[in-house]
């Protein structure tokens, strides 16, 4: 699966933040940073069309309104800080997945038989990434995906996303408030400063 679509955000506006506009070509990664409570998650949710918002979102030149909302979210995947599981075993949450990615995340196919109740938070988050990428999105929105994880697991997630981005051309928006993590993943991004969004190049 090769992602080729460019995400264009025009005057996206929520809460009392100033409108936010940016272009995100296929294969690029930007970060979004800011103090907690400043609206990072809300902005990301708006891009996935999970919350009402003002402004235009375009993928490959087509407005988000030209697609049914669920089709938009299939292309613009959102990975929250805490994953949700509803079946008893891992396999119940997957119809299809990328086998190479599974290995890269440190699992074997036997993981599909594991019980959700016995997974660690690190295992859950790695599987959630696998699940989000299984829908073959064009854009991946990561909302502090490593917030509750140890260093080793954080590293696996960072490297897997990086590798996948290079291989597939997916575009990534990474929300993080950890400046060290940001410097590892990309040089370009946006910071929320009171009600302004400022573009930054590290």
């Amino acid at each position: 699966m090769i992602a080729t679509m460019k995400l264009v955000v025009k005057n996206l506006q929520i809460l009392n933040l100033q409108p936010w506009s940016f272009d995100l070509p296929a294969g690029e990664c930007i970060y979004l940073s800011g103090p907690s409570g400043s609206g990072k998650t809300r902005l990301l949710r708006a891009i996935a069309d999970l919350d009402p918002h003002r402004g235009e979102l375009l993928l490959d030149g087509f407005s988000y309104l030209s697609l049914p909302a669920h089709a938009w979210r299939k292309k613009v995947a959102f990975l929250p800080a805490e994953s949700q599981w509803w079946c008893d075993d891992v396999g119940g949450h997957f119809t299809d997945y990328d086998k190479t990615l599974l290995l890269q995340l440190g699992f074997t196919e036997a993981v599909m038989d594991w019980e959700i109740a016995r997974l660690s938070s690190g295992e859950k988050q790695r599987l959630a990434l696998l699940r989000a990428l299984a829908q073959a999105p064009e854009v991946l929105l990561l909302d502090e995906p490593t917030a509750n994880l140890d260093n080793k697991c954080t590293q696996v997630i960072e490297q897997t996303v990086e590798q996948y981005r290079r291989d597939s051309g997916i575009a990534v928006v990474w929300v993080s408030h950890d400046i060290e993590q940001i410097s590892r993943i990309t040089r370009h991004g946006w910071v929320i400063d009171s009600d302004q969004l400022r573009e930054q190049h590290l």
Binding site: L50, H70, A71, K75, L79, P80, S83, R131, A132
Partner: peptide
């Protein structure tokens, strides 16, 4: 709500 939204995030219909 979190579970329902997690499914929406995976591109499920309402």
């Amino acid at each position: 709500r979190s579970m329902i939204e997690a499914r929406l995030m995976l591109g499920w219909t309402w």
